[in-house]
Simulated scan of single mutants.
Amino acid sequence: MKYIWTTLFVLIASVATAQKKLDDAKLECQYYYVYQNDTLKGSTKDDRLVLLIGAKISKCYSYHSLQIDSLEENPNGNKIYLQEVKEFLRTGVRPRHKRMKAYTYKNYPEGKMTVTDGLMLQDYIYTDSLNNIDWSVSDSTKTILNYTVQMATCDYRGHHWTAWFAPDVPVSDGPWKLHGLPGLIMEAYDTKAYHHFTLVGIRKVKDMPIVMSKTYVGTNKFEKTNRKSFLKMQRQYLENMTGMIKLETGIDLDPNSSRRVLTFQPLETE
């Protein structure tokens, strides 16, 4: 865990130099995120999410995606990545790669949420609503990382969520877009276990800026959209990936491909 904290601080420092500062982080949380990438086969993938919480703004993103951003900032990034690809061909160890592409900024702008996300060769930006989750808090409790946590449930964006929050950590925040409880969300999962977030580390920090991360793909500019339009494009991509590749690049990887049954349940289905 110590190595992860140290590496993360170096990565944040490397990508923050030329980016817009929004706030200073007071608290840093790390979540282990497991999701079913194929609901028919029951196979899963994982990610490590970082939640930086400042006095006014918070930012949640994938640690692995930040690694790729740090390579893009590095003048020798392409050389380093090519070396990792060579190692992959030799050893089978997969090179660094992006996982969750979404960066979520709560209370930015004030009272709302800004989200950046990507599909293929384009990154998008949109504004989302905040303080819009109707939680039902119960008396059930358990312990996570030596904190007594309390259970709450809600219906949010197409899933029924169970969350466990810590009243002793008085920040109304959590992984991804989850928020709105009287304490930090330390664990959250949907009824069908498509998505599961578990807090694995928490610490107070200083001199750690919260910045608006840039995009490094396509035109290096975010395309403005809205949440529903992005979700529609995302679903089209998941159902017809080769078709989307042809649309963006002109390359037809599989002329015989057709729309497939969606076996991955996104975090938002409505």
Rank of each mutant, 00 (worst) to 15 (best):
Val171Asn: 00
Gly243Cys: 08
Tyr103Gln: 08
Cys154Lys: 08
Ala193Cys: 01
Met1Tyr: 04
Ser58Glu: 05
Leu40Asn: 12
Gln122Glu: 15
Trp176Tyr: 15
Tyr124Pro: 07
Val34His: 11
Lys45Leu: 04
Tyr237His: 06
Ala102Pro: 00
Thr91Pro: 06
Asp123Lys: 12
Gly218Asp: 02
Thr141Trp: 01
Ala188Thr: 11
Met241Asn: 14
Asp38Ser: 04
Leu178Ala: 07
Ile125Val: 15
Lys224Arg: 13
Leu8Lys: 00
Thr6Asp: 14
Tyr31Pro: 04
Asp38Asn: 15
Phe264Arg: 09
Asp69Thr: 06
Asp168Trp: 01
Asp69Ser: 11
Lys79Trp: 01
Gln150Trp: 02
Pro170His: 03
Ser213His: 11
Glu268Trp: 02
Gln83Pro: 00
Gly180Asn: 03
Arg99Ser: 07
Ser136Gly: 06
Tyr108Asp: 04
Lys177His: 12
Ile251Thr: 14
Val200Asp: 14
His97Asn: 10
Met186Ile: 11
Gln150Ser: 05
Gln67Asn: 06
Phe264Met: 11
Ile4Cys: 04
Gly201Cys: 03
Asp139Leu: 03
Lys101Met: 11
Leu49Arg: 01
Lys221Asn: 14
Ala16Lys: 01
Gly183Asn: 05
Gln19His: 05
Tyr124Asn: 08
Thr39Ala: 13
Cys154Thr: 15
Gly77Phe: 05
Glu248Ile: 06
Trp135Ser: 07
Val10Ala: 05
Ala163Leu: 04
Val211Gln: 07
Val261Phe: 06
Glu239Gly: 15
Tyr63Asn: 06
Val115Tyr: 09
Arg94Pro: 08
Ile210Thr: 07
Ser258Trp: 00
Asp23Met: 09
Phe197Tyr: 15
Lys20Arg: 15
Tyr147Glu: 10
Ser65Cys: 10
Phe197Leu: 05
Ala163Phe: 03
Pro109Glu: 10
Val169Gln: 04
Met208Gly: 00
His196Glu: 08
Tyr105Val: 04
Val169Arg: 01
Thr44Pro: 01
Asp155Trp: 04
Ser140Thr: 13
Asp47Leu: 00
Asp139His: 08
Met100Asn: 12
Gln83Cys: 09
Ser65Asp: 06
Arg203Thr: 11
Asn132Ser: 10
Gln265Trp: 01
Ile133Gln: 07
Leu49Phe: 06
Thr17Ser: 13
Gly243Gln: 07
Thr91Glu: 10
Asp173Ser: 05
Arg99Pro: 00
Ile144Ala: 07
Leu27Ala: 05
Thr104Ser: 08
Lys228Ile: 11
Met186Trp: 01
Arg260Phe: 02
Tyr126Ala: 10
Gly118Ala: 12
Asp139Ile: 10
Pro75Asn: 08
Asp38Phe: 00
Pro75Cys: 11
Asp117Gln: 04
Thr7Asn: 13
